[in-house]
Simulated scan of single mutants.
Amino acid sequence: MMPALLLGCGEPSPSSNVIISGSVSGTVLEEYPDQPVIVLISHDADMNAIRNDPMNTLIAYAGVDPSTRSFRLDLQDSGLLPGDTVFIAAFIDLSPADRAPYPDTGDWIGFWMNPLNFSTMYTVTAGENNITDIRITREIFDFQAAVTGTVQTDEIGGMLLFAYVGPLTSLNPAALDPDRIIGYTSLIMTGSPVEYFLPILPFGFDTPIENVLILSILDSNQNGLPDAEDKIGYHTAAPPNPTAVTITEGLLTDVDVWFF
């Protein structure tokens, strides 16, 4: 197994006792049995930053053991501290080269996602962080897109906002397919409307991406998890039904979100 290579480490810290381990899975692994599978840890999910500025974006990367499909990255000299948040991804490198590996167009990728609130950012703890399984299910495409608008509510509390490729059969968060979530952000509502910026991940769907719903969950009981007490909001041009949008290259504006 390739040892973890640390990038952009900064000053080592005696408190940086962080190890991230887990495994990978996916039927696509059987299609490319001889290609390397790489795990990367980065400060965020910005693929352009990972590609163009790896020293300031990537924290570490390592190869997956092909016999066990497992990985273990010792980050004790990375400067990473318990409580920091990271993006953890695994990808099949179909065009390996003499450079720091990064997910490229045509590769296949999977990433850690919190199944309870759909966040793609993992909060590390001291010692071993076993994130279990990363499913490699999404092809990587080459586009940059984002959605902006205003969340129209006078509520107070934390809010989850995400882009979901329909069809949508239920507004129950438990019924959502994680592989159809293509963008995620969080907001703090302060009692008045708040503008948002929602980056779209270029994974799994290529532009134009039709039938995309912009959904939000207001954490009414402040427990950090979607549940029955929370309020559901969405973009609509014909209340009270959600209205889908089409994601194309660039910025889609004025996609306001309402609660009913």
Rank of each mutant, 00 (worst) to 15 (best):
P103L: 13
P103C: 10
P103M: 12
T105K: 06
G106K: 03
D107N: 09
I109V: 14
I109L: 15
G110L: 04
F111Y: 15
W112E: 01
M113F: 08
N114A: 01
P115R: 06
P115N: 09
L116H: 12
L116E: 15
N117T: 04
N117Q: 08
F118R: 00
F118H: 02
S119A: 06
T120I: 14
T120K: 06
M121Q: 12
M121R: 09
M121Y: 14
M121W: 04
Y122W: 07
T125C: 06
E128N: 07
E128A: 07
N129R: 01
N130E: 03
I131D: 03
I134Y: 03
R135S: 15
I136V: 09
E139H: 10
I140V: 15
D142Y: 10
Q144M: 13
Q144L: 13
Q144G: 12
A145L: 10
V147H: 02
V147M: 08
V147C: 04
T148A: 08
G149P: 06
G149L: 04
G149H: 02
T150D: 13
T150N: 09
T153S: 15
T153M: 07
T153K: 05
D154P: 00
D154Q: 11
E155K: 11
E155S: 15
I156Y: 13
G157V: 00
G157P: 04
G158V: 04
G158N: 14
M159L: 15
M159S: 09
L160S: 05
F162Q: 04
A163H: 05
Y164P: 00
V165L: 06
V165Y: 00
G166C: 05
P167C: 04
L168I: 15
L168A: 14
T169N: 14
T169W: 12
S170Q: 02
S170I: 00
L171C: 09
N172H: 05
N172W: 00
N172K: 03
N172G: 02
P173C: 06
P173D: 01
A175I: 03
L176H: 01
D177V: 06
D177H: 05
D177P: 00
P178H: 08
D179N: 14
D179I: 01
R180K: 15
R180S: 13
I182L: 06
I182A: 02
I182P: 04
T185M: 00
S186F: 11
L187D: 02
L187N: 00
L187S: 06
L187Y: 02
I188G: 13
I188M: 14
M189R: 05
M189E: 13
M189T: 10
G191A: 07
G191H: 05
P193Y: 05
P193M: 01
V194Q: 15
V194T: 15
E195L: 03
Y196F: 14
I200Y: 08
L201P: 03
L201V: 06
P202W: 04
P202S: 10
P202L: 05
P202Y: 09
F203H: 14
G204D: 07
F205W: 10
D206G: 07
T207K: 03
P208W: 11
P208T: 13
E210V: 09
V212P: 10
V212T: 11
L213G: 07
L213R: 11
L215M: 13
L215D: 01
L215F: 07
I217D: 06
I217E: 03
L218N: 11
S220R: 12
S220V: 15
N223T: 08
G224S: 00
G224N: 01
G224L: 01
G224E: 06
L225T: 11
L225A: 12
P226W: 02
P226Q: 04
D227A: 04
A228D: 09
A228N: 09
